[in-house]
Every structure is written in structure tokens, then in C-alpha cells.
């Protein structure tokens, strides 16, 4: 025991860094800066903290699909694994820009026009652009604070029909109200494989929803859903239209199933943890507890004897 305590108090810098990274990576949506602030004072070691932050923030930002405002305030750039050109450079295909970001501060410091090699071919861009337009319309309608983007993740240099390529739609909506002790995020990633040979689109969706309420407590929701749908390979506009319809339909259904899960809570799911009222439907007869010295008889009577 004594040895263990000694060992514990002598954590190496590497161990401290791993612990710091764990806390940062496990921050709830939108709360990494708060975690960072508390973590700094717990660690009390600027150098270890900075090393951990350098490694953890980029991973957190990409997995949480955070959006950052462009320096000229013309719009947002999403931080995702799909548009990462370099560890600090993210492509914004809508405006053909490349944003340079500071991961730890979670700000976009500058933007430059993208060069041709960074952008998809005109053939791919037609599909990407059409889908982006449909998604902008849908996200604008469905998410009060949603940001979306469409990237080409495979075959961006395909020049014309005859080859496969893959687009990905990313939707990210975050709501933070620290004053109300409540934060949440909705993240959808839709991969669309354009299979030229069989003229089929294979659509795979992954939705992740989280919410955190922590006024005098700590309660979190984690919900996840995945799906796979196939549809016909069509011209850019028609493809975009049918993909957007599939996404719209599936996300609306998923929201409805989340609401159903909530409404099932009181009478079914939560009841399996603890009932609102006892099986007898009356409050427990504490005034009769003296009789419980005859416990066996009562247990028999209630039919709960072992």
C-alpha cells in the first residue's frame, strides 16, 4: 500500500499528459474550454497541459465536428476528418477557401483561396455543388443553428463518367447555454458512394446526439443511430434531390424515435429501475415496522419469500 501511494504521488509527466488528454477528449459537446480551465489548475503544470492540449484539441474538434467562423465573418468552416488538408488547414469547398485554424483556441485565424489541386474536378464539383445546395436548403429549414458541408472523400479527380467516387455530407448543430447549465449537439455524417458500374448510390448515415444538463447534478443523454440505404445513380441535380430526400426522411424519423424513447421512460424503461409507487400502490407502512420481526410471515403473505 505504502509503495503504491509513493508511486501514485510520483506520476511521470507522460502519465500526467495521458490523464490530461483523457479529460479533454471526454469533454461533453461544447465544454472542452471549461474542462481545460479546471484541468489546468488541477495539473498545475503548464508544460504538461500544453502538450496534452496540442494533441487532444485537434482530435476533439474533428470528432465533434465543430464549426468556426471565418476571419472575414463570411461564414463558417467545419472541422472534420474529411476536409483536413493539413493539421491546421481545413477546406471550405463552398467558397473554395482554405481556413487556417488554431485548434486549442478554437478559432480560425486566416483564410486563403484554395488552389486547384485542393478542389475536386469540374465533373465531381457538379455533383458536390448540387448536393450542397440541397443540403443548405434542408439544414436551413430543419436546424435553427445547423451548419453543413459536402466534401469529396474519394475520387475527387475523376474527370467524367466511368469511375466511382464518394461524397460525404456533414451536419453539425450545437447549442450552448451555460447560464442554464445545458449544452447539446447533433452530428450527422452521411457517406454517399457513387457506384458508376452498377449505377447505384450507397448511402450510409451515422447520427449522434448528445445533451448535458448539470444544474445541481450531472445528467447526460447519448443517442446513436446508423442506417444504410441504396438509390439510383442519376444526373447531379436528380441525385442531389433524392439524397436530400432520403436524409430528410431518415433524420425526421430518427427524431420521432428519440421522442418516443423519452415518452416511454416514465411507464416502461424507468419503471424497471424504480417504480413510482410500490407494487401495493400505497405508501410503505412504516408505522407497522414493529411487525416486521415477523418478517417471514409477511414475506410469505406478499409472495416475495425467497
Amino acid at each position: 500500500m505504502a509503495e503504491e501511494e509513493y508511486y501514485d504521488s510520483e506520476l511521470s509527466d507522460k502519465q500526467k499528459k495521458e490523464i490530461a488528454k483523457w479529460f479533454l477528449l471526454n469533454s461533453p459537446a461544447g465544454e472542452i474550454q471549461y474542462i481545460a480551465k479546471d484541468l489546468k489548475s488541477v495539473l498545475n503544470d503548464e508544460r504538461v497541459y500544453n502538450e496534452a492540449a496540442q494533441e487532444a484539441f485537434p482530435l476533439y474538434n474533428k470528432s465533434h465536428l465543430i464549426s468556426l467562423e471565418l476571419p472575414d465573418r463570411s461564414g463558417d468552416v467545419l472541422i472534420t476528418p474529411y476536409n483536413e488538408l493539413d493539421k491546421n488547414e481545413y477546406l471550405d469547398p463552398r467558397d473554395a477557401q482554405v481556413a487556417t485554424v488554431n485548434h486549442v483556441k478554437q478559432v480560425c485565424t486566416e483564410a486563403r483561396p484554395a488552389v486547384d489541386e485542393e478542389l475536386p474536378s469540374p465533373y465531381i464539383e457538379e455533383y458536390r455543388y448540387a448536393l450542397d445546395a440541397e443540403m443548405l436548403k434542408y439544414v436551413g429549414e430543419a436546424y435553427p443553428k445547423g451548419v453543413c458541408s459536402v466534401y469529396c472523400v474519394n475520387g475527387k479527380d475523376v474527370e467524367g463518367p466511368g469511375s466511382n467516387f464518394e461524397l460525404v455530407v456533414v451536419i453539425s448543430a450545437v447549442k450552448q447555454s451555460p447560464k442554464n447549465f445545458c449544452n447539446g449537439s447533433w452530428r450527422s455524417v452521411w457517406n454517399i458512394e457513387f457506384k458508376d458500374e452498377v449505377q447505384v448510390l450507397v448511402i450510409r448515415g451515422k447520427i449522434q446526439v448528445g445533451a448535458h444538463y448539470f444544474e445541481e447534478g450531472n445528467v447526460q443523454l447519448d443517442a446513436k443511430n446508423e442506417c444504410k440505404v441504396e438509390t439510383k445513380f442519376q444526373a447531379p441535380e436528380e441525385s442531389a434531390h433524392s439524397i436530400a430526400n432520403i436524409i430528410r426522411h431518415h433524420e425526421a424519423e430518427y427524431l420521432a424515435s428519440l421522442e418516443a424513447s423519452y415518452s416511454n421512460l416514465p411507464d416502461t424503461t424507468f419503471k424497471d429501475l424504480r417504480r413510482k409507487l410500490p407494487v401495493t400502490r400505497t405508501l410503505f407502512p412504516w408505522h407497522n415496522t414493529s411487525q416486521f420481526s415477523l418478517t417471514r410471515d409477511i414475506q410469505k403473505e406478499l409472495g416475495i419469500g425467497k
Binding site: P144, G146, V209, Y213, G217
Partner: peptide, 18 residues
Amino acid sequence: DQVYFGKTKEMVCTLRPP
């Protein structure tokens, strides 16, 4: 049930209103 779960549900419906 009412407050804590309710708040997370409210949050979901703020992110993507039914």
C-alpha cells in the same frame, strides 16, 4: 424524470425542432 431527462429532451428539440 421530469427535470433532468426533460431538460435533455428540450435540448434535442432545440437542436432539431420537431
